[in-house]
């Protein structure tokens, strides 16, 4: 039997519940990313936040983006970050201080930025349709390989360059004469 539009016995819509749950997960895990002591756990929390965001993309009617989020962020970037953590973290790694001395200034700045964004958003009247429009994957494909084919190709060049750059930078012994120290 299909479940209703709303929570049983209330006027609260399932969508809203889902949104709130996902938002709490997203913000919570994000906070953990920036506050936890152990950097491995930070990385894991980051995966959680990426996953929550993928859920929110689904709520926004964009399954392709959600899939891409999972594939790229969780599947590639997170793994990359975890590898980097493992490469740099040594046994005697200084875990004594997680935060900079300027952390409190950063916190104040972050709060102020949040306030400014929220204030701006809430005081602005958007010409919104009021409902989420479903985004079909086929539409995206049409547009990406039609109108946006040039940026698409540019991105592919960028990715190639990034791969080459990453390999060059991370090499143990930079080839003599090719490095640019200036």
């Amino acid at each position: 039997m299909p479940i209703g539009q709303t929570l049983p016995f209330t006027a609260v819509r399932w969508d809203d519940v889902l949104f709130v749950v996902l938002a709490i997960m997203l913000l919570g895990s994000a906070l953990l990313v920036v506050t936890m002591r152990d950097i491995i756990r930070c990385g894991l929390a980051m995966i959680a936040s990426f996953a929550s965001l993928a859920g929110i993309y689904v709520l926004l009617g964009n399954p392709l983006l959600a899939a891409t989020q999972v594939l790229v962020y969780i599947g590639a970037i997170s793994i990359l970050v975890l590898f980097a953590i493992m490469l740099t973290e040594t046994k005697n790694a200084p875990t004594r201080l997680v935060f900079q001395t300027q952390a409190w200034v950063g916190a104040v700045a972050a709060v102020v930025i949040a306030a400014i964004i929220a204030g701006t958003v809430l005081t602005t009247t958007w010409p919104s349709t009021g409902a989420v429009a479903w985004t079909a994957t086929s539409d995206i494909a049409t547009m990406l390989f039609g109108q946006y084919v040039l940026p698409f190709e540019a991105v592919s060049v960028l990715l190639t360059a990034a791969v080459v750059g990453g390999v060059l930078l991370a090499r143990r012994e930079p080839p003599a004469g090719k490095e640019d120290r200036s």
Partner: peptide
């Protein structure tokens, strides 16, 4: 915006 602020804080503080 909140997510962005958290990211900002992390970038400035960690």
């Amino acid at each position: 915006g909140l997510l962005f602020s958290i990211g900002t804080f992390g970038f400035l503080a960690r």
